[in-house]
Design a protein around this nucleic acid. Structure first.
Ligand SMILES: Nc1nc2c(ncn2[C@H]2C[C@H](O)[C@@H](COP(=O)(O)OP(=O)(O)OP(=O)(O)O)O2)c(=O)[nH]1
Ligand SMILES: [Mg+2]
Ligand SMILES: [Mg+2]
Ligand SMILES: [Zn+2]
Length: 562
DNA sequence: GCCGTTTTCGGCCCGACTGTTTTCAGTCG
């Protein structure tokens, strides 16, 4: 997949153009880079179909650039710019406070081309002696160059959320805060977050900022103002806090929840009406038209209130205008959990404990999916253990009132088979199947496995592990056909580093599949992660009817087996 | 460079914080 790679080149072109004071083009290159990153398929496929120019923000020139990169591995415009300024523009601008103009001046004055040379120049005091630079700038570069070397580390949503809860609890206890709300990518429930953004109301904003920048765990303070501050916590997590008045609460929520492109779309809508939208409100000249609540802001723009998960500039503003926003699936709609592991394979809980935890969560049913033979770590169920598992499941059912279905997570082999027999599959209530190895063509293997064997659910289809394993590329149009023929549903896996199938692909193919949202819990506590998968389902615009595990267990089994 | 039920030309979101500026450019959200 070249998408991210090409996006990086376009981003570098943007920086190099900005260094030369070129107007507007950098904006266009950045916009195009974002669109490529967000693509839910390889850019090669779009190119094959001749649809590059159809992507919003990509016109003739950049489409030609993309084709040149795919064919020749290089974009001429990029090479020319690099000849003029042979600098690692992306690495240098990762240093907090260093942008295109700084890169240009340091290159021209000191010949700085990369992070090592930048550090050397700062250590030797040469940066501070450049006209227009000073000691403070030099020190800031030294302070932040380490972070820039690490690259742009993003945190898993599932890891960030508990930290956010802790932070919000801690600050809420301080008198200075009247209200505090997580916003940004956390509120939109993006799979990973670059930082944590918080919005607050405060009786005494000054005291609120003091409390924030004075938190025990603060490693450094990036900036501190009257309305905005930015810190880095010991764990390396950046946290931004914005403080506003009650009058502006709604418009500030809209602003700080984003996404950036959603904001721009709303602001242009305001412009079209001769108004101005910012974090303080919606204004017609000096008159405030809205601002206290989010609903008020959207309403004043003739829009239905858009759920935060949808604010990604993926058509939600148009849908809100037409009153055609989806009735998103909620946690209350969920009736059961269709992937989990017990002590019979690599889980930490007994069947009974899993059922008890499910009862606590209000589930009507669970599907046990211990691993088949290929992934047994220690022991794991043999085929004749099924009788005993069934007996245990029945006892758990009687004790908890939760219907306990007995299934398996079968491994799809490199040849597109399963690691258990078809006969064994049929003796189970349902069969979940998934890939665990990278060999061969993933689409072929999956299509063969679900085409030739009694599979009911395809689990974590791309097998990505965010941060350390790239997703398999899949031909989802082809899989949609096979799944429809065979009555196979597709999983949205709620494990924090999976969230697989990724939401953009779910969104693109939302009409083509039946979906299930599963936790893949390996302990009773992990059954509580349903909300993470559900948030991804919501980001994909799914409604309760789209998700099988919003129905009774009998209906689910009927639908998949019937 | 991209785009278009107000435009094929003329716009492109809008504001906070920092440092070195003596009045604001650069960077970031
Ligand atoms: N209007 C406007 N709003 C912006 C801009 N940049 C950021 N915002 C708003 C929308 C963002 O969601 C919000 C927080 O900014 P962040 O840089 O933290 O982005 P976000 O949290 O969306 O993603 P992240 O996971 O942190 O990379 O601030 C901008 O250039 N213009
Ligand atoms: Mg953020
Ligand atoms: Mg932020
Ligand atoms: Zn497992």
């Amino acid at each position: 997949m070249n998408n991210a790679e090409i996006a990086r080149v376009l981003d570098e072109i943007a920086v190099l153009l900005e260094m030369q004071d070129v107007e507007w083009k950098p904006r266009a290159y950045r916009q195009a880079a974002r669109r490529l990153e967000e693509l839910s398929e390889p850019v090669e496929d779009v190119r094959e179909r001749g649809e590059l120019e159809a992507i919003d923000g990509i016109g003739d020139t950049i489409a030609a650039d993309v084709r040149a990169y795919l064919d020749e591995g290089e974009i001429e415009r990029h090479r020319e710019l690099r000849d003029r300024y042979p600098v690692d523009a992306l690495a240098l601008t990762r240093v907090e406070g260093v942008g295109p103009k700084t890169v240009k001046r340091l290159y021209e004055a000191l010949g700085v081309q990369d992070l090592d040379q930048l550090e050397a120049a700062a250590v030797e005091g040469r940066v501070a002696r450049v006209e227009g630079f000073g000691e403070a700038t030099q020190q800031r570069i030294l302070d932040h160059i380490g972070l820039a070397r690490e690259g742009d580390e993003r945190e898993l949503l599932g890891k960030a959320l508990p930290l956010v809860t802790g932070l919000v609890d801690e600050l809420s206890q301080r008198d200075a805060f009247e209200a505090i709300e997580p916003v940004g990518s956390v509120r939109r429930r993006a799979p990973t977050v670059g930082d944590v953004d918080l919005l607050a109301r405060a009786g005494d904003p000054e005291a609120a900022m003091d409390a924030f920048t004075g938190l025990d765990d603060v490693d450094r303070v990036f900036s501190r103002g009257d309305t905005r501050s930015s810190i880095v916590l010991g764990a390396g997590l950046q946290v931004d806090l914005r403080v506003v008045d009650a009058d502006s609460w709604g418009s500030a929520l809209v602003y700080f929840t984003g996404s950036k492109s959603h904001n721009i779309r709303l602001r242009r809508r305001a412009q079209d009406r001769g108004w101005k939208l910012n974090e303080y409100g919606l204004f017609a000249d000096e008159e405030r038209l809205a601002g206290g609540t989010e609903a008020e802001v959207y309403e004043a723009l003739d829009l239905a209130e858009i759920p935060p998960e949808l604010r990604e500039d993926g058509g939600e503003v148009l849908a809100a205008e037409a009153s055609e926003l989806p009735d998103l699936v909620t946690e209350d709609d969920i009736t059961g959990d269709m992937q989990m592991h017990t002590e019979w394979s690599d889980g930490a809980g007994s069947i009974r404990e899993m059922a008890e935890a499910a009862a606590e969560l209000g589930h009507a049913f669970i599907l046990l999916t211990d691993h088949g033979p290929d992934l047994r770590v220690a022991g794991g169920p043999e085929e004749d253990d099924i009788t005993e598992i069934r007996a245990e499941a029945e006892r758990a059912e009687e004790a908890t009132g939760v219907r306990v279905l007995v299934g398996i997570e079968a491994n799809i082999t490199t040849k597109g088979g399963l690691d258990i027999s078809d006969q064994a599959c049929r003796e189970l209530d349902l069969v979940v199947a998934s890939l665990h190895t990278r060999a061969g063509d993933a689409t072929e293997r999956i299509a063969k496995a679900i085409g030739e064997h009694p599979v009911d659910v395809l689990a974590h289809p791309t097998n990505r592990r965010i941060g350390w394993r790239e997703p398999n590329e899949l031909d989802l149009d082809r899989l949609a056909e096979v799944c429809a023929e065979q009555g196979v549903a597709v999983e949205i896996n709620a494990q924090p580093d999976r969230l697989d199938l990724p939401w953009r692909q779910v969104h693109r193919h939302r009409e083509a599949f039946d979906w299930v949202v599963s936790t893949d819990a390996h302990s009773p506590g992990q059954l509580g992660r349903m909300h993470l998968g559900l948030a991804q389902a919501r980001k994909a615009w799914l409604e309760p009817e789209d998700v099988l595990n919003t129905r009774d267990p009998e209906e689910v089994v009927d639908h998949l087996r019937g």
